[in-house]
Simulated assay, not measured.
Amino acid sequence: MLVCVTGGTGFVGAHSVAALLRAGCQVRLLVRDKAAVGPALRPLGVEPDEVEICAGDICDEPAVSAAVRGADAVLHAASVYSFDSRRAAEMRRVNLLGTETVLDAALRADVGRIVYVSSIVAMYPAANRVLDARTPVGRPRDVYMATKAAADEVARGYQEVAAPVFITYPPALLGPHDPHRGDQTSRLRYALRGLTPIWPTGGFPVGDVRDTAELHAAVITEPRPESDRLFGPGRHLTTRQYMRTVRRVTGRRLPSAHLPGKAMLPLGRMVDGLQKAWPWHIPAEYGAIYTCACDCRVAADAPTQGVAARPVEETFTDTVRWLHAGGQLTDRQAGAALAGRD
């Protein structure tokens, strides 16, 4: 089976490529920069010559059409995941226009199975704060979340006309080997460096990127997916539980204060406005606060294609060890997570 993957040099995409290869698939990547393939895949045990590489942008229809031609399946994992207000235009272009371009090209090429990687936040805010395959697309007030919701509507529109489109909803993802040290990895690093001592109350589902990658491989390769809307395995953590988990795996005290999430939303708006003029990233974005204030969880019986979530302590420990090994955390910051390292 030949699978065309977009976003294969990103966090979810790279791990999904490795999982697809382990499942016996051939993989073709559509990437903007061929030089990024090696750094993203080699840490996962994949050499660039193990995949076919096409250069192109996901918003360029001819490039996308060429990449999906002849593929048995498409995994559309390309996305800009950021709560940084400075990237709003980029998110609107990539997350919405890119999804429209890829799904349209895949359907015109008569691809047998198309998997779009959405996000749980596309359903935020949910009326009962519980998400499952029947939850409607939300109307979130953050730019990133709104672009994912709009793209989700595009994918669901194809489902309504019986197109072979499947949607996955990953939670907030951690794990080793994040090629771009994305939002969640950076948030954990900020916490370990003592830069985020104040947290909103509420919480969010957290999962391991390796489990979501296994979900993608299963949805693409197994004959009968459990549902046309599936959830990346994970567990809901309140922000207090999140910090307690960080303390357990590092053995550090890491004091934190927790203020009402809704009360912190004006602060998030102010930070977003300031961020547009401030050259360095401020780790207190409106979207992150809003996510916690919405405090949604995934239903216990939500479809995951039989992929179970690994223990959150394992995920946090492996992420901290990887950050330390890359020189992004000191011995003191990583703490007890370094015990038993190779």
Score class of each variant (00 low, 15 high):
E61K: 11
E61C: 10
E61R: 14
A63H: 10
A63E: 12
V64F: 00
V64N: 00
S65C: 11
S65P: 06
A66E: 15
A66I: 14
A66H: 13
A67N: 07
V68G: 05
V68S: 05
R69S: 14
R69K: 15
R69M: 13
G70E: 07
G70Q: 09
G70L: 04
A71K: 03
D72C: 12
D72L: 11
A73W: 00
A73D: 00
V74A: 06
V74G: 00
V74C: 05
S79W: 02
V80R: 01
Y81G: 08
Y81F: 15
S82V: 10
F83V: 10
D84A: 14
D84W: 07
D84G: 13
A88W: 05
A89K: 04
A89M: 07
E90W: 08
E90P: 04
M91Y: 06
M91N: 03
R92D: 10
R93E: 15
R93S: 15
V94E: 01
N95E: 12
N95R: 06
L96G: 00
L97N: 10
L97F: 07
L97S: 14
G98P: 01
G98Q: 01
G98F: 01
T99I: 04
E100L: 09
E100Q: 09
T101N: 06
V102H: 04
L103Y: 02
D104I: 09
A105M: 14
A105H: 09
A105I: 09
L107P: 02
L107N: 03
R108E: 12
R108I: 10
R108C: 12
A109S: 08
A109V: 08
V111A: 05
V111Q: 02
V115N: 04
V115Q: 03
Y116N: 03
S118R: 00
S118D: 02
S119V: 02
S119I: 01
I120E: 15
V121I: 13
A122R: 00
A122N: 06
A122P: 03
M123D: 04
Y124W: 12
Y124K: 02
A126V: 09
A126M: 08
A127D: 12
A127V: 13
A127E: 12
N128H: 09
N128I: 04
R129Q: 14
R129S: 12
R129P: 08
V130Q: 03
V130M: 05
L131C: 09
L131D: 00
A133R: 01
T135S: 09
V137R: 10
V137H: 10
R139I: 11
R139H: 14
P140L: 05
P140Y: 04
R141E: 11
D142I: 08
D142Q: 14
D142E: 15
D142V: 11
Y144F: 15
Y144A: 06
Y144Q: 09
M145F: 11
A146F: 03
T147P: 06
K148H: 08
A149G: 10
A150N: 08
A150T: 13
A151K: 02
A151C: 13
D152V: 05
D152C: 13
D152S: 13
V154M: 01
V154T: 04
A155E: 03
R156M: 11
